[in-house]
């Protein structure tokens, strides 16, 4: 289990990295934290001619407040996000989800840009980027462009980038909400999710003014459930709301099955997690 031969380059700037990818002629691959890429290389499931290591690019790792948004550099490690007070106060759903991202050793190394680019349907950060409606700044040979998270994830392990494009930073809008919840079930703590849901609720008196909901682990990509959001807007909150929410979520998601969980079980799980999440979101303030 050793990788096939590849060239290794370690550019110091994003411009140089993009140039290296362009020169690789579609045979290049970007190395960030390496937590998914290295196993793929070792299994020889990925065999790039050139490996472009971003770790020497210093200005890609940051977390900063920009008005009503939080910007995170693509090379920021999961652990830095997990421990960031800014994330804790401005993006609390993300802060809660970060401890579910694999294990500590992986969080020390893995990066947000890498996780989003890898586009695993059961990984937390891709789902959170949909949940928050994040925008990804990507750089290619013809300059920089912005991609909405909802356009970014094409299929399982597939994003919409061109081979020579690199994610540079991600901006997360700060959500106004009165309550929120993040629920996830995995076989073991730190495993990929069997099912997971993030929800936040803004109230007006005893009605739902706005709601945000995203799920993962059940389909080929994470999903933001705008249909459910629309149906819940302006409805009165009562003790049936969590059940109603659960019903709406399960009726608009058809789950995938795999080795760990059948479609039926995932569907059941998602329904139960949805109910629990809504109960929590309605019970908490802030």
């Amino acid at each position: 289990m050793k990788p096939a031969k590849f060239e290794y380059v370690a550019p110091a700037t994003v411009d140089a990295a993009v140039e290296a990818l362009r020169a690789a002629n579609g045979e290049g691959k970007v190395l960030a934290g390496g937590q998914s890429l290295l196993p793929l290389l070792n299994f020889r499931m990925t065999r790039p001619a050139v490996l472009v290591d971003l770790n020497g690019i210093k200005d890609l790792s940051f977390i900063e407040l920009r008005g009503d948004r939080v910007a995170i550099g693509a090379l920021t490690r999961h652990r830095e996000i997990e421990q960031s007070p800014l994330i804790g106060s401005k993006l609390p759903v993300m802060a809660a989800a970060m401890r579910y991202v694999a294990h500590l050793a992986i969080r020390n190394r893995g990066t947000i840009g890498g996780s989003l680019s890898h586009a695993d349907p059961a990984a937390e950060l891709p789902m959170l980027s949909l949940f928050y409606g994040a925008s990804l700044l990507v750089q290619g040979p013809s300059g920089r462009r912005t991609v909405a998270a909802e356009d970014f994830f094409v299929d399982a392990l597939t994003n919409c980038l061109e081979p020579e494009e690199i994610v540079v930073e991600i901006e997360f809008p700060i959500l106004q909400h009165d309550g929120w919840a993040f629920e996830e079930v995995a076989r073991r703590f730190g495993d990929f999710a069997l099912a997971s849901i993030a929800v936040s609720v803004r109230r007006r008196a005893s009605t739902i003014e706005d709601v945000r909901v995203a799920v993962m682990g059940v389909a080929d990509t994470p999903l933001r459930l705008k249909e459910v959001e629309a149906k819940l807007r302006d409805i009165a909150i009562d003790n049936q709301t969590p059940d109603r929410f659960s019903g709406l979520v399960t009726s608009c998601v058809s789950a995938n099955g795999d080795l760990h969980a059948s479609a039926e079980y995932r569907h059941h799980l998602l329904g139960r997690l949805a109910r629990r999440a809504m109960q929590t979101a309605l019970a908490t303030k802030g």
Partner: peptide, 16 residues
């Protein structure tokens, strides 16, 4: 063999 890696062959870890 479908469960050939430690992602798919699930062993108990400390929390379990």
């Amino acid at each position: 063999l479908l469960s050939a890696s430690l992602v798919d062959y699930v062993i108990p870890s400390a929390p379990e």
